[in-house]
């Protein structure tokens, strides 16, 4: 019969339409909220999603995985008196590994000895060149540069970030990447402990 294929196809579409409402009703009967809740969004992004698929961005947001990366930022630790202790030592590895070469670092030199000091004087990232590859964060030996989760950074101007704009506290980093943060902290503590033990051993032998 001519037209059978079209009807068959339309039935698939009809089923999708129907699913949206049956799903809504079944959530309602179970007393759960399908929209604007984490559970609802997770369900809509899982294999069981049926019917409506939309996550209504500004009102609700997709739940991004921990590894999600957008643009880089610099991590600082909050010191005892609220001082920002920048983790970056301006070693320049991120600037070297950056594929589009959009990281610019000014290393600090000691005014007296003129020897380099492990703190950046300034740090620029041209966010409009950055290709979000994540190499800087991957190869940074000091866990000082990390990839951000914040993507709503559109602006009316070109985006060249300087040190001030790049800095974000370690607590923020721990918030967006808890697992990575925990792992790195552990590694750092182990390293410090090993260092201390080594120093102790050295002191004992001498």
């Amino acid at each position: 019969m001519y037209g059978k294929g079209i009807l068959k196809g339309l039935s698939v579409t009809w089923k999708r339409f129907w699913d949206t409402y049956t799903e809504d009703i079944s959530w309602m009967l179970r007393g759960k909220k399908r929209y604007n809740t984490e559970e609802g969004i997770r369900h809509r992004s899982s294999k069981d999603t049926k019917g409506i698929f939309t996550v209504q961005y500004p009102e609700e947001q997709l739940i991004v995985p921990e590894e999600f990366r957008y643009v880089p930022f610099l991590v600082y630790d909050e010191g005892a008196d609220g001082k920002k202790e920048v983790r970056c030592t301006s070693c320049g590895i991120c600037a070297k590994v950056c594929p589009p070469q959009c990281i610019w670092i000014v290393r600090t030199n000691d005014p007296v000895t003129n020897r380099p000091v492990p703190v950046p004087t300034d740090f620029y990232i041209d966010m409009d060149i950055c290709m979000n590859c994540g190499f800087c964060a991957e190869y940074c030996p000091f866990d000082a540069i990390k990839m951000d989760h914040d993507f709503a950074i559109a602006s009316y101007e070109r985006n060249v970030y300087n040190l001030n704009k790049l800095l974000k506290p370690a607590s923020y980093y721990a918030g967006i990447r808890p697992e990575n943060y925990a792992r790195e902290e552990e590694a750092r503590k182990a390293k410090e402990a090993a260092k201390a033990a080594k120093a102790e051993a050295a002191a004992a032998t001498s």
Partner: peptide
């Protein structure tokens, strides 16, 4: 890597 990026990457 380009040399202009570090250590004097103004």
């Amino acid at each position: 890597p380009y040399k202009s990026r570090w250590p004097e990457g103004n």
